[in-house]
Computed example of a mutant assay.
Amino acid sequence: MQPIYIVLLLVAIIALGEVLSLSTRAKIPTLLVVIATTFVLLQTGILPESYIEASTFVAAGSVLVPVLIVHLGTLIPLPVIKKQYQAVLITVIGLIISVVTMLSLITLFFDYSTAVAGAGPLTGGIIAYIVTSEGLTAAGYTSIAAIPVVVFALQNLVGMPLTSILLSKYALSIRDSLADEAVATTEQPDSPLAADPDKKLIIPARFMQSHFFILFLLFIGGALATWLGSITGINYSLWSLAIGVAGSAFRFYPDRALDKSNSTGLAMVALIIVVINSLVGITWDQVVSALLPVIFIIVIGTTGLIIGGIIGGKIFKWKPTKSIPVVLTALYGFPGDYLIVEEVSRSVGRNEAEQRRIMNELVAPMLIGGFTSVTIGSIVIASILIGTL
C-alpha cells in the first residue's frame, strides 16, 4: 500500500478520536480512542503491523520528539509560573508523593521495573509515555511493554470525572460566597497559555516572521539536546526541556514557538503515530496480563496524587476541593484541564457574572498544574526513572 493511503487511515483514526472527544467534552479522550481502535485493527490483522512503519511518519515523529519538547518549554512564560507558584509547588508535592508511593508499593506487590513502567505515564502525558516506552524497549523489558500504554489509555477515565466532582463542589463555595456587585466587576484575565505580544526577542523581528526560521531554531535546540544526551548520559528529553525553558527566558525562542511556525498540528500527528507504532508487537495476552498491575498503578498513583494535593492544600491554605484537582491534572493535562473548568463554570454559575468569576479563579491554577505535571514533571520523572533500570 502507498504511504499516503496508510497515513490517511491513521489520520482518520486520530480524527475519529477527536470527534468523539469534542462531542463528549473530553469524557472520551482522543488517545484512548486511537489506542483502542489501532490495537483492535492490529490484533485482527485489518491493519498489518508493517504498514505503520511503511507510513514513514514513525521516523518523522521520532525526529520531532526533541523538537516538540523544546516547544513545550516555551509554552508558559516564567513570570506567569512565578505568579502561580503555589499551584506549581502543590503539583510538585503531589507528583513526589505519588511517585514515591508507586515505587514503594508497586515494587512490593510486583517489581521495580513494573513501578517504573507505570510511574512515568501516570504522572504525565504523551512525551512521558514515549520516553518510558522507548526506555523499556531499550532496556529489554518487552514483557511489560503493555503496562505504560494501558496506563496511558485509562488514567483519563479516573482523573477527569474525579476532578469534575471536586471542582464543582469548590465552584459552589465560590458562588455562594459572592455578592453580585463584586462579581459583576470582575474582568476576564488573559489565559496563562496566551503568548506575550510585547516580548522582545534577541533575534530581529523580521526573521521571526518566517515559519521556516522558527522551525530552524527549534531544530537547533532539538539537535543540541540530542547531542548533549549522547555525551552526558542524561536523557535528551531533559536537555530539550531545559533548552526550551532557557531559550524562552533569554528571549531566543518566542512563546509557543511551534504554534508560531504553524507546525503544531502536523507535528502532533507524527507524534501520535509514534505512539501507535509502540503498539506493534504487543499482544492481547500481554494487555490482559497487564490489567492487574495497571489497576494497582492507577489506584496507588492516584491516591498518592490526592494525598499530595491535601498536604499541599494545607501548607498553602487551599481547600482540598481546589488543591486536589490541580494535582490531578497530571492524569490528563491540556486541554482536559481547560475543558473541565469551562464546563464546571458554566454548569455551576447561575449567570454570566458568576460563571466568569468561577472561570477566573480556577483556570490559571489548573492550567499551571497541568503544565507543571504533564509538560515538565512527568518528563523529568520518566527520564530519571528509566535511567535507573
Rank of each mutant, 00 (worst) to 15 (best):
M1G: 01
Y5F: 11
L10I: 04
E18Y: 09
V19Q: 11
R25F: 06
P29D: 11
T30K: 08
V34P: 08
L41W: 09
I46V: 15
P77S: 15
P79S: 11
K82D: 05
K82F: 14
Q84I: 02
I90V: 15
V99K: 08
M102F: 08
I106F: 05
I106T: 14
D111I: 12
A119N: 12
G125V: 12
I127Q: 07
I127G: 01
S133V: 02
L136R: 10
A138H: 13
V150W: 03
Q155T: 08
L157Q: 07
V158Y: 05
S164A: 13
I165Q: 01
I174A: 04
D176V: 03
A182I: 10
A182L: 15
E187L: 15
Q188C: 06
P189L: 06
D190Q: 14
P192A: 13
L193I: 12
L193Q: 05
K200F: 03
H211Q: 12
F212P: 00
T232A: 13
T232Y: 12
S240Q: 07
A242R: 01
A242G: 14
G244D: 09
G247Q: 07
P254F: 06
D255Y: 01
A257T: 01
L258C: 05
D259H: 08
K260T: 08
M268V: 13
A270G: 00
L271Y: 02
L271R: 03
I272W: 05
I272H: 01
V280L: 02
S289F: 00
L291K: 09
P293Q: 03
V294H: 02
I300K: 00
I300V: 11
I300E: 00
I306P: 00
I311E: 03
I311D: 01
K314W: 09
I315F: 10
P320E: 07
V327G: 04
Y332T: 07
F334N: 15
F334V: 14
G336K: 12
D337Q: 15
S345A: 15
S345C: 13
E352V: 08
E354M: 07
I358L: 03
I358K: 08
N360P: 00
N360L: 06
E361S: 11
G369S: 04
V374T: 12
I384T: 08
L385Y: 03
I386S: 00
T388P: 02
